[in-house]
C-alpha cells in the first residue's frame, strides 16, 4: 500500500490527500463548530460596525466600559419576540448603570425587520447581521442566541434558545455591579 502510494505521480498523491482531508473535515466539522461556540466564552468579543433599519448604527468597539447584551434574533422567531420587550425594559432600567442592549437580526432582508420594529419598537439599536458576523461569534445556528459581554469587552455568557430570563438578568446585574460605567 505504502509502496503503491510512493509510485503514484505526486499530483495524484496530493489530490488524494486533499480529498482525504476534506472528507475528514466534513466528518468533524459539526463538533468542531460546537466547540467554537463554547470556546467563545471568556474571550474578547469580536468587534463590528453594523447598521440597521431607521438609521441604527453600532460600533461595538465604542461600547467598551459598558456591559453589552448582544442578542441575535429574527422576526419569525417566537421566543425572540417574547424576549425583546424584556430587553427593552432592561435597557431602560439598567442603561444608566452601563447596560447597552444590541439586537442583531438574522432575517434575510431588512424590510421585514423594519416592519416588525414599527409594530414593536424597542429602545435599543437593531442592526442587520450576516453569516460573517455569526461566524465571528462561533456560529449562530438557531435563534435566539444572546451574549453577555463585560465592561472590558470579554464574552462572559452565551444563552441559546428559550432562555431563563431571570437567570440572564442575574448574570447581567452581576456584570453591571463589577465596575462603574
Amino acid at each position: 500500500m505504502a509502496s503503491s502510494d510512493r509510485n503514484r505521480p505526486l499530483p495524484r498523491r496530493i489530490l488524494g490527500l486533499a480529498v482525504a482531508a476534506s472528507l475528514l473535515f466534513a466528518g468533524v466539522s459539526g463538533s468542531a463548530r460546537a466547540q467554537t461556540a463554547e470556546s467563545m466564552l471568556n474571550r474578547p468579543a469580536p468587534v463590528f460596525v453594523r447598521s440597521g433599519p431607521g438609521g441604527a448604527r453600532v460600533d461595538l468597539a465604542q461600547d467598551r466600559g459598558r456591559v453589552v447584551l448582544l442578542n441575535f434574533w429574527a422576526t419569525w422567531c417566537a421566543p425572540c419576540r417574547t424576549e425583546m420587550p424584556r430587553f427593552a425594559a432592561w435597557q431602560k432600567e439598567y442603561g444608566p448603570r452601563g447596560l447597552r442592549v444590541v439586537g442583531v437580526s438574522i432575517d434575510d432582508s431588512e424590510p421585514p425587520v423594519r416592519a416588525f420594529l414599527e409594530k414593536l419598537p424597542v429602545d435599543y439599536p437593531v442592526v442587520m447581521g450576516d453569516r460573517a458576523l455569526a461566524e465571528q461569534y462561533g456560529g449562530v445556528l438557531g435563534v435566539p442566541v444572546t451574549f453577555l459581554i463585560d465592561r472590558r469587552g470579554i464574552i462572559r455568557g452565551r444563552f441559546e434558545g428559550e432562555t431563563d430570563l431571570r437567570a440572564l438578568e442575574t448574570r447581567m446585574r452581576r456584570l453591571l455591579d463589577s465596575g462603574s460605567p
Binding site: 466534513a26 459539526g30 463538533s31 463548530r33 460546537a34 438557531g142 441559546e160 434558545g161
Partner: peptide, 15 residues
C-alpha cells in the same frame, strides 16, 4: 431545539 444543537453539535455532516 435548533439545527446547531440537534444536528451540528452531534457531529453529523454539514456543508
Amino acid at each position: 431545539h435548533n439545527f446547531g444543537t440537534d444536528w451540528v453539535s452531534k457531529g453529523y455532516g454539514v456543508e
